[in-house]
Simulated assay, not measured.
Amino acid sequence: MALSGNLDAQRRRDELVELANAPRGVMIDAAAELFAVSPMTIRRDLLELEAEGRVRRVRGGATAAPRARPFDARRAIRATAKRTIAEKALQLVPTAGSIALDASTTVSMLASAIGPRSGVTAYTNSFESFQLLQPFEGVSAVISGGTAEPTTGSLVGPLARRSIRSVYFDIFFSSADALDSDDGTSEVSVEEAELKQAMATNAATTVVLIDSSKLQRRSVARALELHEISVLITELEPRDERLDPYRGIADIR
């Protein structure tokens, strides 16, 4: 049953934000019917809400606005998918050489599984991954300098970027807050995006580990261009149709 069409605009937008925060977000056509207004009115509402940082527009609607979440809270989200992704990525970790690991929870699962190596140097801006790598024989863990980001547990800023840019990597393992088949990866903050750009620039191979809920989405700050991504790993089977927009862009696993 449609709500009254006489709801004032501010109340309607407040309720749109609540709907966008639901697991599936809010769709324009459904919201137009719910509030008894035109789809164009809902589009204008969502444009204004996105400008205020209250929602993120997606194709056909909107979802919750991107925000930095504490590491422990992020680790619990889609944990099964992240474990599957980490298991696939483990096959690409060399026995020797240099690798870079970002500060994502997906990559931390990979770090926890690396195990003994003959001589790997692992650079990271993640406190969590740095600690997880300590027990492994043959793995030398190096943490970047920088400014601590208390919410995400990462190190960011000019010092972190300068530290990363002084090293060349065989492989960079990165996750992302979103991946779009036109615009590449994006992050919740400019600082996180800039650090991943620095890692990718100095890496011979960049592997993006991302669960399927983040596909065909955009976050706040652009990070990696599509041509920088060598391998794309999700929890899906490589032939899954949801991966069709990325075929020809990267090796899909």
Rank of each mutant, 00 (worst) to 15 (best):
A30L: 04
A31V: 06
A31P: 07
A32E: 03
A32C: 05
E33G: 13
L34Q: 15
L34K: 15
L34T: 15
L34P: 06
A36P: 00
V37C: 10
M40C: 03
M40V: 14
T41G: 13
R43D: 10
R43Q: 14
R43K: 14
D45N: 13
D45G: 14
L46S: 14
L46M: 12
L47C: 12
L49A: 08
L49Q: 08
E52R: 00
R54G: 10
V55P: 12
R57E: 11
V58L: 07
V58M: 09
V58K: 05
R59H: 13
R59N: 07
R59Y: 13
R59D: 10
G60F: 03
G61Q: 09
T63L: 03
T63G: 00
A64Y: 02
A65H: 06
P66F: 02
P66N: 02
P66M: 00
A68H: 03
A68W: 02
A68F: 01
R69A: 12
R69D: 11
R69E: 14
F71M: 10
D72Y: 06
A73F: 07
A73I: 08
R74P: 07
R75W: 11
R75F: 15
A76T: 11
A76V: 11
A76W: 00
I77S: 03
I77N: 03
A79W: 02
T80N: 03
K82F: 13
K82P: 11
R83D: 15
R83E: 14
I85R: 01
E87T: 14
E87F: 02
E87S: 09
K88G: 11
K88S: 12
A89M: 05
L90W: 06
Q91A: 15
L92K: 02
P94Q: 04
P94S: 05
T95P: 06
A96G: 07
A100P: 01
A100K: 01
A100S: 09
L101F: 08
L101C: 03
L101E: 05
L101W: 01
D102P: 09
A103K: 06
A103N: 14
A103F: 12
S104M: 05
S104V: 06
T105S: 13
T106L: 08
V107K: 02
S108L: 05
S108F: 08
M109P: 00
M109W: 04
M109V: 01
M109L: 14
L110M: 13
A111F: 01
S112Q: 14
S112W: 04
S112N: 10
A113F: 00
G115Y: 00
G115D: 04
G115W: 00
G115C: 04
P116C: 08
P116Y: 08
G119M: 03
Y123R: 01
N125A: 12
N125S: 13
F127V: 14
E128S: 13
E128C: 12
E128M: 12
E128P: 04
E128D: 15
S129K: 09
S129H: 12
F130L: 12
Q131Y: 04
Q131G: 10
L132P: 04
L132S: 00
L132N: 03
L133C: 08
L133V: 11
Q134C: 00
P135D: 07
P135L: 05
P135T: 06
V139H: 07
V139L: 06
S140A: 09
S140Y: 03
A141N: 04
A141F: 02
